[in-house]
Design a protein around this nucleic acid. Structure first.
Lengths: 339, 339
DNA sequence: CTGTTAGCGCATTCAA
DNA sequence: TTGAATGCGCTAACAG
């Protein structure tokens, strides 16, 4: 590996000039040419250790997520990368495999790598742990009330509320909801929206229709199997994330339950299969691109403006992809309308 | 951030002693105690920049994969992490979003981060690029013949060969194969196995049944739609990776094609849905855990034994998960047997 | 616009 | 077993 010194010698200038040139300072056109040639000649790249040691910056952004194998996370990461790369930053991605202990390990790792900022989609991470961090942090999918930390998330309560209201308006009262672990912020919020819709409609919330498990395919599958065995089976199922949705759909298909004739269904997240299934699945969709871009922009703001910027909490709206997976129970005629 | 110097002062020893202690050298029991206390007291961690600058090692392993959102990749990464972490190494994961240019960028990034070794699951990366790397590299899913580089992969030819033989023995002669882009090593090998099975069976290879596209869900979906529109439709479809399999299955379901009655099907990779679909899907399964562990072990060997170790090329066997997605055309009786 | 100087925090000599 | 001295490659002050 060649050093700045060697480049300097070859280009006939001082090492400091090379360093400055590399960080954007103007140099004489002739020097520029010489330097460029020397760099190419020696195949020179900055030693990130030395540079980091001096500046205490790594030009990297750490990303900590619960699961790598999740389209929601990876799409957002993709967008974040696109944004920050324009400003010279790269990302280091860590997942904690939905494991609380590993989550803390990985957080330490990102800190030890001297990331300049972090993006965290918390799994079990305690608010206090996040508060202790002495660097810019942007949270995804979670808000910490008494903390000055940027957040980007969707209005999970409203998302669920809209889903359940839609079902209620279609005549459903027995609506099962598939939830993840209660420790996760989005799980609580999505359930909250479900309950609110019932309250606002003066309907009873039936706890036997509220199901909890992991945020994974197997859980969606098992819980749906359970539901189908219930004596008083619900007329609709609402799955609150992509894995639960996938698992539920598989179970329904296995059990020869036709959507929406035998049971109505609304899922969550921008799943490939939602749009290609027959009938198309109605799902809550999150503005993934917008989330990723916002996170990227907030990061860049924080990194470039040392001066205090106001805390930025962005709560985005979800939308619904309307398939044909909900049966309208209020239409008693033959001309039953589905949407 | 505290430094070794501060720890040294607090512990009443010299910085050098701290450094040595941290890298495993024995110290007086009393000193050990003092040092431990001081480290805890100051919440000290090594500065990776300074340490790296001095040693030229980062204790990290770079992992470069085509897609983050792919269970095959992420499961392997998971296993690799489990292995190397025991030896003090961490991983930095990069994906190139199935984009050749990005793949080279990310490779440069990993190099600039001074990774001590790389694991690469190549997308479009040229063999020459890999050869130029001045560090241990373990390839997954690819072998480079005239290069002294460790590889771990499965016998892709055999995997396909077995699939197609199984179909042929069940009386199928018109077998469509869904392939990814021809530039990818596994794509060529899997097609090769397909062709070999035909040759060995003295059957004609029909090029109209060989389909190429991306390794993604949409391609699987579109190609299968195409197949179903063919005048002379094949009696079986073989999808050569997980995304193609998923896409194909969705298309078949949309088109009300019953597996295996209307068409036989064999997929690829350890898909969640394969085992829960009705009927269960027959798929080629790769020994993911074994691959990950082998890669991890090879890495550790390379990193700890500077002396030349022999090149390690591990070619693992795939197996088949036998569902009920293949119809036996040779049985003309009512008692048709499926497997 | 450019060069000189100094030191970031650590690991490694070498000597004790 | 420990400590003093040195320099890894770079950047930031400062002076020119």
């Amino acid at each position: 590996m060649s050093t700045i010194k060697e480049v300097a010698k070859l280009a006939g200038v001082s090492p400091a000039t090379i360093s400055k040139y590399l960080s954007g300072t103007k140099v004489k056109p002739k020097n520029k040419e010489n330097i460029d040639n020397a760099i190419k000649e020696l195949d020179f790249t900055l030693n990130t250790f030395a540079s980091g040691l001096r500046t205490n910056r790594s030009m990297t952004i750490g990303v900590l997520i619960p699961e790598l194998d999740n389209q929601f996370s990876t799409s957002i990461i993709s967008k974040i990368e696109n944004t920050v790369i324009k400003h010279g930053y790269s990302t280091i991605i860590c997942d904690c495999k939905s494991n609380g202990a590993l989550e803390e390990n990985k957080l330490s790792f990102l800190i030890s790598k001297k990331c300049d900022a972090l993006v965290i989609m918390p799994y079990h991470l305690k608010a206090r742990k996040i508060q202790e961090l002495k660097m810019p942090v942007v949270l995804i999918d979670r808000i910490i009330d008494d903390m000055d930390c940027d957040s980007v998330l969707v209005d999970n309560i409203e998302a669920s509320y809209n889903v359940v209201m839609k079902l209620i308006k279609s005549g459903h009262e027995d609506i099962a909801i598939l939830c993840g672990p209660d420790e996760i912020y989005t799980v609580r919020k999505r359930l909250q929206g479900y309950k609110k819709a019932f309250s606002d409609s003066d309907l009873e919330i039936k706890n036997e229709y509220i199901f909890h498990g992991e945020y994974d395919v197997k859980t969606g599958h098992n819980l749906t199997n359970e539901i189908l065995k219930m004596e008083k089976r619900p007329t609709a199922i609402y799955a609150t994330n992509s894995e639960l949705t996938l698992g539920a759909v598989i179970s329904l298909s296995e059990n020869n339950m036709k959507i929406p004739d035998d049971i109505s269904f609304i899922g969550f997240d921008n799943l490939d299969i939602a749009k290609v299934m027959t009938p198309k699945l109605s799902v809550v969709t999150q503005p993934i691109d917008e989330i990723g871009e916002l996170v990227g922009e907030i990061l860049i703001d924080r990194l470039f403006c040392k001066n205090e910027i106001e805390r930025s909490v962005k709560i985005l709206k979800t939308s619904m992809f309307m398939g044909k997976s909900v049966k309208n129970l209020t239409l008693k005629s033959n001309a039953e309308k589905e949407f």
